[in-house]
Design a protein around this nucleic acid. Structure first.
Lengths: 387, 387
DNA sequence: GGATAGATAGGAAATCTGACTTACTATTGT
DNA sequence: ACAATAGTAAGTCAGATTTCCTATCTATCC
């Protein structure tokens, strides 16, 4: 890791970047608060804020009042400095949901437009471009205002080969698609696993808020796991970290897919007399009917996955998410905790997701926002903003 | 994460720190090379080097020759600026080795003294203090020259409670011992799991040199796993990350301990007619005798552990280490790879450790050096060095 | 004689300290 | 009740300081 060295310009860039980062993090701040937080002097703080304001990154959003002396100006980030579009691309081979959920928000995180799209076009490039344009129209924004597009895909994204892998939606697996999108849309484009993005949402607005880290286990039609280490998602060398389904179960050649994958849960439910179209429906039914036998057996299987993750990572928290876990709710969580504690000496706290809205889409927004904010801060630190 | 802001003094501190970091990383550098690497001007580079030299952190170690013009001075870190003692505390309940391996090195990593100690004293504090003093004597150094003491323990260290847990050596599990040691020895003291430290050695001088990350699976009397992410060891919230033994194997209540722990390997060997005192001896014998059945079955079990780690973390590399893996060598590795590839679609590269010397002790030295270097660099960046 | 290492001098950019102006609140006096 | 006054805090201005860079110069080595 090379530490940076430089001249007075670097210093100015760092101070601007630090100030902007604080504004992004805290929302609104007065000069005095910024002075306290950055340690800079009054004149420097003023100068930095002037530069940021002139460049369109920051703005005055109000004044203090009540205290003695003049009213201090309250600064905040200019919400219109950047806009993010998030797209949640869904696997429609199993569930008949609309194929794409999309939302647009500004730099402050305010959602300006949101819509579900039924994509039939075979060309993902056109589909994304159309979605972005449509959202902009709904929000009354110029298309050029969008800075970043974040894709959530039901598969993993390998940045090395720029390929979305394991995806069952036609046309999306083409290598180079993401960078092609970036140049066509003239924005940065990020792609990530839907479960990883749900973890983003869990950190920003769910039960993992403020956690030092956590593992999010996803039980739905598919099976997945996101690993958050101090706010950074662990992706693995080929973007395939958290492929829980491949964790083996015994020497029989079975893996977790065979135990807690959607079909496996459905089969287990059927064994106990709960027949339904989807695993989450079966679990919901079991919860209502107090089908303890089924739920207990399911919990034992989930605990198996939990124990493997917990033993290897020792996370401060494990969050159970996905349709099945959500359907199971607190009852399932308690059964999982029982099974977990019975089987291992590990004592990782277990929670069920608190997100009722589309976690993947919200997480994609959060991830996109973070990418945009980081790049803003970085752009200030490298090519400093001339007045 | 607060980004730092500051005045021209911060700039100087950063430039000094960057220069020192480069010297530590590259060993020897001329002014011209430093100028290239830092981007600083000639006069600034000279000034920074003068300050570092005056403060005793850097020194001239030679001159270039051969080219036209004056011979450039070659700078390096002053090896005597700091010294590190590493102690490998061993669990002697199973093997009759000497209880403590210890070594002392300077800031450049040159080992100045090394010795095995047979500790019988029940008081760990006294034992460590004695060891440090004795090593200093052997190296002809003043005891105050030691800056950092790094402990390698057969258990995990929880920094939250300042406790070494799961340790079977009497007296070492007392909460607060590490910080007490630090104040008594008047050095910083680090404690870490022996497997984690072996991974440090593997990164610095083994097969994982230059890897983006890797997981080191340890098969010996005990079972463990160290996770290296870009040079940082993942420790988990209570220092218990990588407790492979607790990874469950099926719904039977069994875990990996029951499959590839020392006793389990010994039992498996016996089933195949290889009887020995230690698992590594049994494996060695099997390798010599080409005991394919035993080795293949062992490899299948190891592949199970590997698959769990690989599916969850997707590491760029997995290193097999520990006495058993070392005894199995390339033959075992190939069998493990076969089993792994047969059981899962994952394709993580597998290597056997290349370290024949005491990996834990060397790793503790490496970790201690890194701690000292980081704190040196940091001390320059915060309280800048007055001339 | 040509090229390079290192030092020196002058100037530019950024910061800080301390004083100053302005604006708002609260108290006091009529 | 209303107006003048004192106190406090926000923001700016000016001068001093620190650090760095460019350009020049000297000494050294092939």
């Amino acid at each position: 890791m090379t530490r940076l060295a430089g001249s007075s310009k670097l210093l100015r860039a760092m101070n601007e970047s630090a100030t902007l980062a604080l504004l992004l993090e805290r929302g609104t701040l007065t000069r005095a608060e910024l002075r306290e937080l950055t340690g800079l002097s009054k004149p420097t703080t003023s100068d930095v804020l002037r530069t940021l304001t002139d460049a369109g990154f920051a703005m005055v959003v109000g004044h203090t009042s009540g205290g003695p002396g003049p009213n201090a100006e309250i600064y905040a980030v200019n919400p219109a400095a950047a806009h993010v579009v998030a797209l949640s691309v869904r696997d429609i081979t199993e569930t008949p949901h609309p194929a794409v959920g999309a939302a647009l928000c500004n730099l402050s995180g305010t959602v300006l437009a949101r819509h579900e799209y039924d994509i039939k076009a075979s060309d993902p490039m056109a589909a994304v471009a159309h979605t972005v344009a449509d959202l902009c129209g709904r929000a009354g924004l110029d298309r050029g205002a969008v800075t970043h597009v974040q894709l959530a895909v039901p598969g993993s994204y390998d940045p090395g080969t720029d390929t979305i892998v394991h995806i069952d939606v036609a046309g999306w697996g083409r290598p180079g698609m993401v960078s092609d999108l970036a140049s066509e849309l003239d924005t940065t484009v990020g792609a990530d696993n839907d479960v990883n993005l749900a973890a983003f949402a869990e950190r920003h607005r769910g039960v993992a808020r403020g956690a030092e880290g956590f593992a999010l286990l996803w039980f739905g039609a598919g099976l997945g796991c996101a690993i958050d280490l101090r706010g950074t998602i662990l992706r693995g060398v080929s973007g395939a970290a958290g492929e829980l389904g491949y964790v083996p179960v015994g020497l029989s050649g079975k893996d977790l897919h065979d135990l807690v994958g959607g079909p496996a849960v459905l089969a287990l439910a059927a064994q106990h007399g709960f027949t339904a179209d989807t695993p989450e429906a079966a679990v919901t039914q079991a919860v209502v009917d107090r089908g303890q036998h089924f739920l207990r057996e399911l919990a034992e299987r989930i605990a198996l996955a939990l124990a493997a993750v917990s033993a290897i990572l020792d996370p401060p928290l494990v969050v159970l998410a996905g349709e099945v876990a959500q359907a199971g709710g607190a009852m399932l969580r308690d059964l999982v905790a029982d099974a977990f504690h019975g089987a291992t000496p590990l004592r990782t706290p277990i929670e069920v997701t608190a997100l009722t809205d589309d976690a993947v889409l919200l997480g994609a927004l959060d991830a996109g926002l973070r990418a945009v904010r980081d790049s803003l801060i970085d752009s200030l630190r490298h090519a400093l903003a001339p007045a």
